[in-house]
Design a protein around this nucleic acid. Structure first.
Lengths: 248, 248
DNA sequence: ATAAAATCGGAACCAGCAACCCGTTTCGTT
DNA sequence: AACGAAACGGGTTGCTGGTTCCGATTTTAT
């Protein structure tokens, strides 16, 4: 059987591809992006091929499955979100940055059914892409909490759930209601201040457990007097690198 | 062609049905309820027939389509919600009642995929059923606002969207997070108090427009000195009836 | 008991769609 | 220009799931 590369890295792939193949690959990816944006994971593959002006066989030459195509079409957006969050982690005014970032992510995602399907977990995204986003968002959250702009009892899990809730709300808001109204409403629940309801606590194993400052995951109980701050060596090193970068 | 009744009214249907037909109808409906509850609108019809111990043809004898079956299986739950809301509209302590009702609806709906599909509008419910629910919920909302338990700038549209957002959030909450945590978080955004963000206003045609006290719909500008309170004669009469019922 | 009518069951039908295959076309090289 | 390899396209296959059809069966009325 002929060797198929199926590489997701465009630069690498385009180097060794025949001219027409390179062109068609770009056409397919472009068509997939716009089609998935409008119709989500549900658009038939034939529709994408039609839009790209190629046969379905050509699509399968470049991407081993519909899911792989979807991943390729959508993951760069999430990576962009992640990169933006990482940059914003070194700015002043953590509170403002946090809320602005959250609103922007929601605004950009709502009108993109593909992103909705991805963030709402309706398919398995490229390994690591979603985790990286979650991690970067967690950093923004923790900084905003330290700046007293977000209530302290909210976890990154809560925030991810709230994000999906906002997507759901904005998607189904009544006609005439402005974009962002539901997000603003939900964001109010994140702000610190007089609380009437106490958040139902996270029970048992997860109670009293500190969260890793980088990834938000569970931190093993400290063996020394000083409490541990990271879930492992990888996150500790990452935090050190980020601090070094912030200083420069 | 033989006359098929396809009636959705059980009492009426059961009167004229043959004994085995009546029994099978109940079996199908029961199986549909539990199957849809677990798998939402997505469960295949054959699965329901299998659970009921009948053939697919029998299902189609009683319900003209899968959607009709879904409606029949799910609408009584929504009607129950509506009835409960109507009863609660005559109790003291509108604030507490409002939040408790909201939480209960969400709690009961989250574990019922069929209800989720219905409330999130993934299919066309029986005409009027959803409107009635919305209407009844609107009454509770307005009473809670008058009792200063809910911020005044929230509309029934906002609330319906928030409800769906809560469903989405509770469904996708991280493992270990207790049921209701996300709802509590979202409810905090409804409470009055110091606000940092101003809700994006609903523009143009709908601004400055009062809401009907019964259905929450738009009220025509008052022609007399006294402002109009209802969107039409139907809602005015309904309000009168409800007041009379409350007095008795 | 018997026959007509209603009902039952599930095989058959149909549509949509992902994935595959192979005869044909195009490209890059010699 | 000619040749071989790579790429193309769309017809084909397999599967899932909603809907229909009809011979077999059960119920009810006489």
């Amino acid at each position: 059987m002929a060797e198929r590369s199926h590489s997701l890295l465009p630069s690498q792939a385009s180097a060794s591809l025949r001219a027409d193949a390179r062109r068609n690959r770009a056409l397919v990816l472009q068509a997939a992006r716009s089609a998935f944006e409008e119709g989500g994971l549900g658009v038939p593959l034939g529709e994408i091929a039609r839009r790209a002006g190629v046969g379905t066989g050509t699509v399968y030459r470049h991407f081993p499955s519909k899911e792989a195509l979807f991943r390729a079409a959508v993951s760069d957006r999430i990576v962009l979100f992640t990169d933006t969050a990482r940059e914003l982690a070194h700015t002043e005014d953590a509170g403002t940055v946090f809320y602005r970032y959250l609103s922007a992510v929601i605004r950009l995602t709502v009108r993109n059914k593909a992103l909705c399907d991805a963030l709402e977990g309706r398919f398995e995204p490229s390994p690591g892409v979603e985790e990286a986003f979650r991690e970067a968002l967690g950093v923004l959250l923790r900084r905003a909490q330290q700046a007293d702009a977000v209530r302290k009892d909210v976890t990154i899990d809560d925030l991810m759930a709230l994000l999906m809730g906002c997507l759901s709300m904005e998607q189904r808001r009544a006609p005439g209601v402005p974009q962002g109204r539901m997000t603003a409403l939900a964001c109010d629940s994140l702000r610190p201040g007089r609380r009437v309801t106490k958040l139902p606590a996270i029970p048992s194993a997860r109670r009293n457990e500190t969260q890793c400052e980088v990834c938000g995951g569970p931190v093993a109980p400290a063996r020394t007097g000083r409490p541990a701050r990271y879930c492992g060596a990888a996150c500790r090193q990452k935090a050190h690198r980020e601090r070094a970068r912030a200083r420069s």
